[in-house]
């Protein structure tokens, strides 16, 4: 089973690595964007899907990472050695502050408190025209460099982002399977029980919040490096909403889901809106169809297809990680 998975993983990686040879530049750019938003959705998924904390303020970290990168690139150096770590540090700092407050509330109030903080950060970015360019956004950001390599060529940039994506994906996969990840899943399923078992659940949730925030910041930083531009609309609550939808549509609590969700949303938004001005209608109908027919998201569709094809096979269902947790307990 394990070996089989690695082969598949290798196959995907190879396919992605060869993409620049058969994708057009526009589609490659689209793929870059999907990978970046994929990282962003994965980071939120750690909170929503694995820890059971639904946040509607995740764009805050994306925005902070993005603006930190943009400002460093403009004022100091566009070198990735400078921009990425600064974004990472700033988003860790901010998420640890916001997280401290957000740990005091739960459920729906958690959702709204994250929204409140992200809107406060939005208004800060919106108002500080001197630092962030205000509503006009931060533009004219030089293209990223690493050592002597200039990443203004999208193909180089693609490989760089693919590597970072692979690292984040693998890292998170390992994390959610680790004992730490299993505790998070336990909290999602029943926090009181985990507490009574002696786990300091607040500390676990807090760590999960910071990791999610940090990775969100990384995604934001990559976004700025890719676009050479960042505007307040990417920090607005609609951005938090759309990344939450990517996670839900893809399949919360799975590794592949959020990435597929990001891909679907980006492709839908780009392609549908080229043909009709009624793209919101079509996307809305697709959301509704998902809820009615595929409440488990894209991954859910795939799984039920696979299950139907191989009905006789015994199921080892890894999209239901609480089974693993029970085994551990």
């Amino acid at each position: 089973m394990k070996g089989n998975h690695s082969i598949k993983f290798l196959f995907i990686f190879l396919l992605m690595a060869l993409s620049p040879f058969f994708l057009s530049l526009f589609h490659l750019n689209l793929l870059i964007e999907i990978l970046i938003l994929g990282i962003f959705a994965l980071s939120l998924n750690l909170l929503v899907g694995y820890t059971g904390l639904v946040s509607l303020g995740h764009a805050a970290f994306f925005g902070i990472g993005a603006y930190a990168s943009g400002i460093v690139a403009k004022e100091l150096s566009p070198n990735l050695i400078a921009t990425l770590p600064v974004s990472l540090l700033v988003s860790i700092l901010v998420s640890s502050i916001i997280g401290m407050f957000c740990m005091k509330v739960s459920g729906f109030y958690f959702l709204m408190l994250t929204l409140a903080f992200s809107q406060m950060i939005y208004s800060f970015i919106h108002q500080s025209t001197d630092l962030t360019g205000g509503t006009n956004g931060l533009s004219g950001i030089p293209s990223p460099q690493l050592g002597g390599v200039d990443f203004s060529n999208p193909v180089f940039l693609y490989y760089l982002i693919l590597l970072i994506f692979a690292a984040v994906f693998t890292g998170l996969s390992v994390l959610v399977r680790s004992p730490f990840g299993q505790v998070l899943i336990g909290i999602r399923e029943n926090e009181t029980r985990m507490k009574s078992m002696g786990y300091n659940t607040t500390l676990y949730k807090y760590s999960s919040f910071i990791i999610a925030g940090a990775l969100g910041g990384v995604a934001g930083s990559l976004y700025t490096n890719f676009n050479g531009f960042i505007s307040p609309s990417d920090v607005y609550w609609t951005m938090s909403g759309s990344v939450l939808i990517m996670v839900i549509i893809g399949g919360a609590g799975t590794m592949a889901g959020p990435v597929l969700g990001a891909g679907l949303i980006v492709i839908l938004e780009t392609i549908v809106s080229s043909y009709t001005n009624m793209w919101m209608l079509i996307i809305g109908v697709i959301f509704i169809l998902f809820v009615v027919f595929f409440p488990k998201g894209i991954v859910g569709i795939g799984n039920s297809l696979v299950n139907n094809l191989a009905k006789s096979k015994p199921l080892y269902n890894e999209s239901k990680p609480e089974a693993v947790y029970k085994k551990d307990a």
Partner: peptide
């Protein structure tokens, strides 16, 4: 997701 989808549909 459902109510957000509805909001999109009603918007258009």
């Amino acid at each position: 997701l459902l109510t957000f989808g509805l909001a999109y549909v009603f918007h258009d």
